[in-house]
């Protein structure tokens, strides 16, 4: 588990519009990498290309290479559905399936993979909920709807759902932006724990959060509205926040920009 992602020369287009230009980076396994940058700089778009979720949007396409260890995710014959089973995703707003119970929500990915054995399902659901720091809060009501939980609990339920299928990588698109500070703290603790087993990539608007949870930070920016977003700088989080190489990074981090 936990693989290295190597991206080279990646461009993302929506129809004719170039949204992200020429991104190359290496994301280390068992680490947390944060993407920061102003709104509209393409960091979420770029994140979605790492599990081909951008293809859900009509007209979106990609040029370049995304390698997961030795495998090109965009090689011909690669099924995006299979990619997403290996590279999981957690969204901005918690999105548990509203008609499913807590148990079924966590088990849903396994059922997609054809796991039917009740004992195995129970085992994985319990392990995943433990892994998402949610077990103690929900163990007595696994058959209740997931929608009845608080926002923060729902988000941890979504993380449990994502890790239940044992992905190599977990992508998180601003996972705390809809949550209160206490729930945010719970998610951040969880991210710290997840990196023992997974490669974690997180997009965040909250720079303190990036500084707290990530090992590596990548700063994205765009030259002007309507221009494509670019990767300005990437490095160890400590260095990016204390001594960035680029002026734009420093301006953004110190709040003089954006």
């Amino acid at each position: 588990m936990a693989k290295r992602i190597e991206v080279s020369g990646l461009n993302v287009y929506y129809g004719d519009f170039k949204a992200v230009e020429d991104v190359s980076m290496t994301i280390e396994p068992r680490s947390v990498t944060a993407f920061i940058g102003p709104s509209g700089c393409g960091k979420s778009t770029y994140l979605r290309t790492l599990n081909r979720m951008h293809e859900v949007i009509p007209g979106a396409r990609v040029e370049g290479k995304v390698m997961l260890d030795q495998q090109d995710l965009y090689a011909s014959g690669v099924d995006p559905v299979a990619v997403r089973r290996v590279v999981g995703m957690v969204f901005q707003r918690p999105n548990p399936f509203p008609t499913m119970s807590i148990f079924d929500n966590v088990a849903s990915g396994l059922k997609l993979n054809g796991v039917k054995d009740r004992k195995k399902l129970t085992e994985v659901v319990e392990r995943s909920l433990h892994g998402a720091n949610l077990w103690n809060e929900v163990k007595d009501r696994l058959d209740k709807p997931g929608a009845g939980l608080s926002g923060g609990q729902q988000q941890r339920l979504c993380i449990a759902r994502a890790i239940a299928v044992e992905p190599e990588v977990i992508l998180m698109d601003e996972p705390c932006s809809a949550l209160d500070p206490i729930s945010t703290l719970a998610i951040e603790d969880l991210i710290e724990k997840l990196k023992d087993r997974f490669t974690v990539v997180i997009v965040t608007h909250n720079m303190q959060q990036a500084a707290r949870v990530s090992d590596q930070t990548a700063f994205f920016n765009l030259a002007a509205t309507g221009k494509p977003g670019r990767l300005i700088e990437m490095g160890p989080t400590k260095q990016i926040f204390s001594n960035p190489n680029e002026k734009a990074t420093e301006d953004y981090i110190t709040g003089r920009f954006g």
Binding site: N51, V56, R84, R85, F91, N95, C158, V165
Partner: peptide, 26 residues
């Protein structure tokens, strides 16, 4: 809601599985 559909797709469901998990219950 897009969120439900994307939630299903991000778990690695095919289009039909997405419809069964998100669209039909809704």
């Amino acid at each position: 809601p897009v969120a439900h559909r994307e939630g299903a797709l991000a778990l690695g469901s095919t289009r039909w599985e997405m419809i069964r998990m998100a669209v039909l219950p809704y």
